[in-house]
Nucleic acid binder design. Structure first.
Lengths: 348, 348
DNA sequence: TTGAAAGCGCTACCAA
DNA sequence: TTGGTAGCGCTTTCAA
């Protein structure tokens, strides 16, 4: 059997409290006794207080949960997510806090159970899709949470994000300013079970994912301002946030009659897929979102948002709660980055 | 106060066991009673059994630790590490197991404490540097562990990795075959506190990090075979596994008298830094290690190892222990990938 | 099908 | 400076 604190106490002939103090509050006992206890522990092979028991007793864990409302591997596959994580990790390291990455089953009940079973002191929720039930589970546990989607946050939640709508409007205005009027908007899983390809959407607000919703709305704003109403915009659905999914979804649209002269994607990864599908000689204008590393190489016009900083702030908001709750909602700046993937409407 | 299982029991007028069963063993009570209990729980705001208490009682946690013997952000910054993590995450997701990423303080005692405090059922150790004390701490806790460094593994440890030495020998033999004899070997933190730049090393075995050690040995093998003894090889130290660190370390060497005609780096990231430092018109041959995504774009000759697969196998070894302990040591295949960054010795 | 008893291993209070 | 007491919230026999 593995030795416990009690065994060490017995071996040395002191009480459990004293052994506990030897580990957790060295100033509460003489150096000599402490040395003797630590020595006996080593001899017995006692590895120190059990973390689980300690957490139970102390009432906190020393870990924060990081949730991606998607497959766990999304976190390591999407370049923006990875940089977000790097930022979270940096702050966690500084606090000596661990990061618990919890895989979320697609099934809602089981997702809720996964949240309920996570031994953590709070959650950072990187919002990918529809997360209301996940956020609800966290709130029900009474744990603090930071989310990256404004619409998803309840008043008590902390939030760090960008003004998705305004940011999207800025790229779209750039494209509109270049004269584009026949435009496609490309998003990942615009509607839950939708097949890849063009989609009928009564309005941008119909997209359940808060990020997609915000970005589509911003795109629509800019085109409405130049006289292109929502129904004239083609919404295209990609079955996943990957280049391949984007290429597969957009290819038929580009090959159709009366193809769009510009494609506005809801992420850089999708935009890169559009460039893949369009081929090197295409003159279609393409924009992305996020400004990941590959975007620069590809000459992609996009909206930059500070990835690592977003992660750092999310973790900081959780680990160093602001005194004033009003400071718990952070809006980060974005920049329109104009590169070579956008240009005037080709005359045909 | 947050409600506990006891409160729910009181409210319904049943015992704690019954409430517990309602959550953990639905088959142990009537559907009607269970519904009544769950309902009362919802009304009281009871979020289900506390994960910590449950872990303590059950004796297991449902999470595995992932350790990087380096800053935690290394895990998200190094492209190979990210892919490894993706593989680990994939298997973890399948098992419904969470991943605890534990930041390791540089200080050995505190690193040990971090390991001791992690509430997990086992560890995957991604070996970056010197990890003996970390592995020791894990073994002392009696937890299973999988490591990626062969030298670091004790007989009881599981291991998944490559034959570092043979893999390194294969690239080096390619370079030697091209006629190169004045060669520099570039590693990250070859010696613990060494400054960037050339280094005196009595032999490759003097590098404490097992990976570096193995790779340098393989490089040395290949050059010994063509008559270039160890002392004629220039070992160069980079202060970190980054392009910038590599560039800074190698620049003076390339600019010196009698510069090497080839640089063999211990990782792709370092090799890319060498290319940065050499500039586009340089004819120095450069090789990397790992074959990350950027390597292909840069035309880097390198050794490919299966990154995601390594992660998947590491996690599987931990989560699905092989019946026969002999199956707990896996050696993965590697491929020499020859691209444009290596060529014959330029005639000057 | 339900309940009572017995801890899992530890820490924090308070008294000596 | 040390020890006794009293749980943290839960699960799991076993018996009813």
């Amino acid at each position: 059997m593995k030795p416990t604190l009690q065994d060490v106490a017995n071996a040395v002939g002191v009480s459990r409290s004293t052994v506990s103090n030897a580990y957790s509050r060295p100033d509460q006992l003489s150096a000599a006794l402490r040395a003797k206890i630590l020595d006996a522990a080593r001899r017995l092979g006692y590895p120190g207080p059990d973390p689980t028991a300690r957490s139970l007793r102390r009432g906190f864990v020393g870990a924060i949960g990081v949730l991606f409302t998607s497959e766990l591997s999304y976190a390591f596959t999407d370049p923006f997510a990875v940089r977000f994580l790097a930022g979270v990790g940096e702050v966690a390291q500084r606090h000596g806090t661990s990061l618990l990455l919890v895989p979320l089953p697609g099934d809602r009940d089981r997702a809720r159970a996964a949240v309920d079973n996570a031994a953590v002191d709070g959650f950072c929720v990187y919002c990918v899709g529809d997360e209301e039930h996940v956020l609800g589970a966290i709130r029900d546990r009474g744990l603090p949470l930071v989310t990256t989607a404004p619409e998803a946050a309840a008043p008590a939640d902390r939030f760090v994000g960008i003004d998705e709508r305004a940011a999207a409007r800025s790229v779209a205005a750039h494209v509109a300013g270049l004269g584009h009027r026949r435009v496609a908007l490309l998003g990942d899983t615009v509607l839950p079970e939708a097949p890849p390809g063009p989609l009928r959407l009564a309005g941008p607000g119909d997209a359940p994912r808060p990020t997609t919703h915000g970005r589509l709305t911003g795109f629509a704003d800019a085109f409405a301002a130049v006289g292109v109403p929502w129904p004239d915009l083609t919404v295209v659905n990609a079955a996943g946030n990957s280049r391949a999914a984007a290429a597969a979804a957009i290819a038929p649209v580009l090959a159709g009659d009366d193809p769009p002269t510009a494609v506005l994607a809801c992420s850089d990864v999708l935009a890169l897929g559009v460039l893949d599908a369009a081929g090197p000689h295409s003159r279609v204008s393409v924009t992305g979102f996020d400004d990941v590393a590959e975007a620069a190489d590809a000459g992609l016009t996009t909206v930059r948002q500070p990835a690592e900083e977003k992660g750092r702030l999310a973790a900081a908001l959780l680990l160093e709660p602001p005194a004033d709750p009003a400071d718990g909602r952070l809006l980060l700046p974005t920049d329109l980055v104009i590169r070579t993937s956008t240009g005037p409407v080709p005359r045909s």
